[in-house]
Amino acid sequence: MCGRFTQIQSRDDYLAFLIEEAESDIPYDPEPIGRYNVAPGTKVLLLNNRDDSLHLDPVVWSYAPGWWDKAPLINARVETASTSRMFKPLWNHGRAIVFADGWYEWKREGDKKQPYYIYRKDRKPLFFAAIGKQPFDARDEAEGFLIITAAADKGLVDIHDRRPLVFTPEAALEWMNPETAAAQASELAHDAAVPADEMIWHRVTQAVGNVKNQWPELIEPMSDMK
């Protein structure tokens, strides 16, 4: 699953890796976002394509339609999201991208759960596949967005059996394109994800478990921490 991640760099750093030129209404902003502990239930910058232009909107990371009588959801499984009654409309018409630098997972080690920070070996940005309720710039806040997850593979499965679906820049743009059919989106989800062998991870401090903590030290390897 994906229950916590980072959005550290500036929006321009993420966009520069995504595409050199794109029609968008996104104003220049060189300031780092600086979120080292993004938690569910908070507003997150969500990249989406509408009206032939890229947009960044602050959208709540959770989804609970009016008829849903359980806790809000934060993830949707790639294996079923395109066909389920709950998620199919979002898959068809509400595909988006979440910028990230890495994500956290917890692994049971002895009598405690040890947090790990997972990121690309080359430290390039991650583009998480997401789905949500359109329009993203005006909505019921209970109906925000979910991050798509896939089965973990290779070494990542030793940390957790699920992982966020991470796209290459090219696949991220095609995923968001309103002209991309639902079946094409499913092909992307299965064929265009960044593979696990491009990821690396290390243990981090237990302090990441407190959503109020937002320090740069949260992502440092434990061996480097004082």
Rank of each mutant, 00 (worst) to 15 (best):
K124C: 03
K107P: 03
F128D: 06
D111K: 15
W68N: 09
A81L: 12
N75T: 14
K112A: 12
P58R: 03
L46E: 00
T42E: 06
A76D: 10
D137V: 07
K113Q: 12
Q134W: 09
D122E: 10
K43D: 08
L47V: 02
K112E: 13
V60H: 11
F136S: 04
S62D: 06
A138Q: 13
D101Y: 08
A130E: 06
N92W: 05
A71P: 09
D51M: 08
S53N: 06
R35T: 03
K113L: 05
L46W: 04
E105R: 08
E79R: 04
D51F: 12
R108S: 05
E79M: 05
P58N: 05
S84P: 06
R77M: 02
T42K: 09
A81Y: 08
A71R: 13
Y119N: 03
R85L: 13
G110P: 06
F136Q: 00
D52N: 15
K121Q: 13
G94L: 03
D122T: 05
R95F: 05
R50E: 12
I118V: 15
N75M: 13
P40S: 10
A39W: 07
A130M: 02
A81G: 01
D57R: 04
R123G: 00
G41H: 10
I74L: 11
S84A: 11
P65R: 09
P115H: 13
A96R: 00
L54T: 03
M86I: 14
I131Y: 04
I118W: 01
L73G: 04
K113N: 13
I74V: 11
P135C: 13
K113R: 15
W67F: 14
N48G: 02
P135I: 12
T42C: 08
L90Y: 12
L47G: 01
K121E: 12
A100F: 00
A130K: 06
I33M: 14
W103R: 00
V60S: 11
K124W: 00
Y116R: 07
A81R: 03
K70V: 08
I118F: 01
K107V: 00
I97Y: 04
W91A: 02
A71I: 10
T42H: 01
I74F: 11
P65K: 08
D140L: 10
K112H: 13
D122C: 10
Y119L: 08
R120E: 07
Q134C: 11
D101C: 01
S82E: 09
P40Y: 05
E109W: 02
P89V: 14
N49T: 06
D137E: 15
Q114P: 03
I74E: 02
H55L: 10
I33K: 12
F136E: 00
W106M: 08
E31Q: 15
R139A: 11
R120C: 07
N48L: 02
K133W: 05
R50H: 10
D111L: 08
A130Y: 07
F99W: 02
K113Y: 10
N75A: 15
W67H: 10
R95H: 04
F136C: 02
D69K: 15
Y116H: 14
L45C: 11
Y119W: 08
L45M: 13
L90Q: 09
Y116L: 07
F128M: 06
R95L: 12
K88T: 11
L47H: 05
A130F: 08
F99G: 03
D122Y: 05
